[in-house]
Design a protein around this nucleic acid. Structure first.
Length: 460
RNA sequence: UCCCCUGUAGCUCAGUCGGUAGAGCAGGUGGCUGUUAACCACCCUGUCGGCAGUUCGAGUCUGUCCGGGGGAGCCA
């Protein structure tokens, strides 16, 4: 039985077994207290070992912080504060010992920086156990949200043959011998002998591919790993991260915004309901008030404004900003946070951005200057979702590709969607780890993924 | 990639004006009638990130390299 289950059980005369790792031991003359955790819950099970029992001094001595133990006993009402039930032990087996002086995890708070250096052990700590459980719950909630609404989960490829998906630097994938790179007559790398016969990369987005399934099956979504080779060292960037990208057919920007709002609220509400113990922990130790923030997002209708209106509001208070705002400029984090935190005091969706600062595939408005883009901004983080209605007109999309100097032949299949039964469709993208950061309050994205991959860091 | 901060015991950190290092926790030993990051006493713990320089003397000042953190850009 898992410890979470044991701790929710009623006392009984029946002997049960608890297995896990010793979190802490409190020893006194006649009795010893072990707190044992198996990761199924924040708090561990308190195990009482009477010194007059058959349990030997030797095994008790080995039950140090970090040791793996299997403990048999009966569950009784706890006479002390702190837990409902506890285990009165009748037998203690040391499954795996730990050399006490070497074990890096102590009965105290460690810095996140230190724990990153021992990423193989950090899931045993309160914080990282809680992050793992919340991450799991959020994954479940994501699938639950889309499946309840009839969306199909589509697995888009990890390896891609197009070298410009329009979103940052890509990792190259090759089986060529890098110590002896074949060259063409012009002196460039000859990819004809490479595995795929051409230059290939890791995907930076599944959107272009998922649009194809959208234009056949209707409402679809992807949820999978994504790779960016940007040389960026920040608390919000990973080289390998997970992304959620829904796409809806026969759907314009309005339906897209509705889905985004419902999605955020569904996920936050799910975590508040299903991970209350972990959320209490984050609320107390990581970011005070995070629970109230999430609850208020769930309870508040999102506000809406166009980019043009947003810029007009920002220009009124331009002296507040390091970067001055004017129509046509990209909104900086400081601007986004002013809009959501001060002007709207809650989530806001900004729409209809200038075409110059958005991707080629976004649908052009009547004015010929702006596109049907939407960014969902939330307090504390700024942009959490970016999406758009897609350009479904063949000529307009082709013109845009040419205008931006992109290679049309790379997108022949994407353009075909607009030739064969084109349809208005819309979708958005959302970085999973950033959503976890938002939910848990953790400041560094490296602490919400089990094994972070960042520039110059690929340990574990 | 740029800017700022930082590196001292296993961990978290203090170290004044340049004079060869200290606290809490962890660990060890003993004690304690039920503890909750248990408590009390005693004991142990150092290539002060590396290299070079200034100086009679460098943890402390200078240069440089390496590691870590934060911010910016870019983005999710």
């Amino acid at each position: 039985m898992r410890i979470r289950e044991i701790m929710q059980s009623d006392p009984s005369d029946q002997a049960i077994t608890a297995q896990g790792w010793v979190k802490t031991k409190r020893d006194s003359k006649n009795v010893c207290f072990l707190e044992v955790s198996d990761g199924s819950s924040m708090k561990g099970l308190q195990i009482i070992i009477d010194k007059s029992s058959d349990i030997s001094e030797e095994s008790l001595a080995l039950a140090a912080t970090g040791a793996a133990v299997s403990c048999e006993g009966i569950l009784v009402d706890s006479p002390a504060k702190g837990q409902k039930v506890e285990m009165q032990a009748t037998a203690l087996t040391i499954v795996g010992t730990v050399p006490a002086e070497d074990y890096p995890l102590q009965k105290k708070r460690h810095s996140f920086e230190f724990l990153r250096e021992i990423a193989h052990l950090r899931p045993r700590t309160n914080t990282f156990g809680a992050v793992a459980r919340v991450r799991n719950a959020m994954s479940t909630a994501i699938h639950g949200f889309f499946q309840e609404r009839g969306f199909l989960y589509v697995h888009t490829p990890i390896i891609t043959g197009s070298d410009t998906e329009g979103a940052g630097q890509m990792f190259q994938v090759t089986t060529l011998d890098l110590d002896n790179i074949p060259k063409t007559e012009e002196g460039k790398t000859d990819y004809s002998g490479d595995f795929f016969g051409k230059q290939t990369h890791m995907t930076v987005s599944g959107q272009l591919q998922v649009e194809n399934y959208c234009c056949a099956l209707g409402d679809v979504y992807t949820f999978g790993p994504t790779f960016r080779a940007e040389n960026s060292n920040t608390t919000r960037h990973l080289a390998e991260f997970w992304m959620i990208e829904p796409e809806m057919a026969f759907c314009e920007l309005e339906g897209n915004m509705e889905l985004a709002e419902d999605f955020i609220k569904y996920i936050l509400n799910y975590v508040l309901e299903h991970c209350s113990e972990d959320m209490d922990f984050f609320n107390q130790w990581v970011l005070k008030g995070v629970k109230d923030t999430l609850q208020s997002v769930v309870d508040t209708p999102f506000k809406h404004m166009t980019y043009t209106d947003a810029v007009a509001e920002l220009e009124k208070v331009n002296d507040k900003f390091d970067f001055k705002v004017s129509w046509g400029c990209d909104l900086q984090t400081e601007h986004e946070r002013y809009l959501t935190e001060e002007l709207c005091q809650g989530p806001v969706i900004v729409t209809d951005y200038p075409k110059e600062i958005k991707a080629f595939y976004m649908k052009m408005n009547e004015d010929g200057k702006t596109v049907r883009a939407m960014d969902v901004l939330v307090p504390r983080l700024g942009e959490i979702i970016g999406g758009s209605q897609r350009e479904e007109d063949f000529d307009k999309l082709k013109a845009r590709i040419d205008e931006m100097g992109m290679d049309e032949s790379e997108y022949w299949w994407y353009l075909d969607l607009r030739r064969f039964g084109t349809v208005p469709h819309s979708g958005f993208g959302l970085g999973f780890e950033r959503l976890i950061q938002y939910v848990t309050g953790l400041g560094n994205i490296r602490d919400v993924i089990p094994f972070p991959r960042t520039v110059k860091t690929i340990d574990f």
